[in-house]
């Protein structure tokens, strides 16, 4: 009899230790997903999700959508530098193989970005086929704090999610307070120059220029109320000259070096005033690429460019604390120099 009781107690103890009860989780698309209480391994479905997971719980990341390049590695925590390339599950061209996903045996798949029907159905299909819970998180910039809290909960790191969400909310609130004092007419007119000739840009309202507009810049690539696809478009030199932006943001170093000596660009206000800025790209871009949490430091940077009187903080200190808080790395002076080359704008020395 004693035997039986002992066995029962042991069994009960075992059950108690095992995470039997999975938590019901409601994702941004309103899907109810059973997420295990212990999430040790996460498959990030694409670049934005990989940044989100890396920021919140780096140990849970099983791989990058594409392996890190040598110049990116110093800006990533050592443990995640050599993670394998796993491909992406959503967006343009699936490069991830479901078998690869299964082989890494994640406890959870996270997609961070659009929650349109296409992605909902993709999530449902993958979840059914692999029996791995798959959550969709709204990737709109405004929803960043919500996403941090939501995924912080799902990954079992609610305190970290809360801390980063508060950082985000403070940043947005500071910006809103400053913008409230600056009339529309005094905000800079900004052109995002993409591509080696600078003649690709993102239309106002597109995800590619979202943070320029959020930081208070007026995007000159504005089709008005026209019903056009808001995305990356080609511009012509004539349109740039007609729009005559007073600030140009680019992440293309070829363009950034060339623009100062180009006779056509020389006619543009921004070039004459030396207000062309090269966005840092390490380890993730500050403007876009991918559209994820990496844009938060970009937002702070742009606010400083657009409104130096209101946001005249020390950029290096800001960057160092952001990279330490979000990216788990402490940057030395040399790493900061490499990162911020061109970020202060003006003709390169």
């Amino acid at each position: 009899m004693r035997h039986v009781i002992a066995s029962t107690i042991m069994l009960l103890g075992l059950f108690g230790a095992m995470p039997l009860r999975a938590g019901e989780f409601t994702d941004s698309a309103g899907r109810k997903v059973n997420v295990p209480q212990e999430v040790a391994k996460v498959f990030a479905s694409g670049p934005p999700a990989s940044v989100l997971v890396y920021v919140l719980k780096p140990d849970a990341l099983t791989g990058w959508p594409r392996s890190l390049r040598e110049n990116e590695k110093p800006y990533i925590a050592p443990a995640q530098r050599e993670l394998p390339e796993l491909g992406r599950l959503t967006g343009r061209g699936d490069t991830a193989n479901l078998e690869v996903v299964l082989k890494t045996a994640p406890d959870l798949i996270i997609d961070f970005g659009s929650v349109r029907d296409t992605y909902i159905s993709l999530a449902d299909i993958v979840q059914t086929r692999t029996s791995i819970p798959y959550i969709l998180i709204d990737g709109r910039f405004e929803a960043t704090a919500t996403a941090l809290r939501l995924v912080g909960d799902a990954l079992g790191v609610p305190e970290r999610g809360e801390k980063l969400a508060e950082y985000t909310e403070t940043l947005f609130a500071d910006l809103d307070a400053a913008l409230a004092t600056i009339p529309e007419g005094q905000r800079p007119r900004v052109y995002l120059a993409r591509g080696p000739d600078g003649l690709e840009t993102g239309l106002k309202g597109s995800i590619n220029t979202e943070i320029i507009e959020r930081a208070g810049g007026r995007n000159v690539a504005d089709p008005g109320d026209a019903d056009v696809r808001r995305g990356i478009v080609q511009a012509s030199m004539e349109q740039v000259l007609a729009a005559n932006p007073d600030t140009i943001i680019t992440w293309d170093s070829t363009f950034f070096e060339k623009v100062w000596s180009d006779p056509l660009w020389a006619k543009v206000d921004a070039v004459q005033k030396g207000r062309v800025y090269l966005s840092p790209l390490l380890p993730f871009g500050w403007i876009d690429r991918p559209p994820s949490l990496n844009r938060l430091i970009g937002l702070r940077w742009l606010a400083g460019i657009f409104f130096p009187e209101q946001f005249n903080q020390d950029l290096r200190a800001q960057v160092r604390s952001f990279y330490s808080l979000f990216y788990h790395v402490d940057l030395d002076e040399a790493a900061l120099d490499t990162l911020l080359a061109g970020a202060r704008g003006g003709r390169p020395q």
Partner: peptide
């Protein structure tokens, strides 16, 4: 196109 950087090279 498959190998290109989707944020930068693919649109170009």
């Amino acid at each position: 196109k498959v190998l290109a950087d989707p944020y930068d090279q693919l649109p170009a």
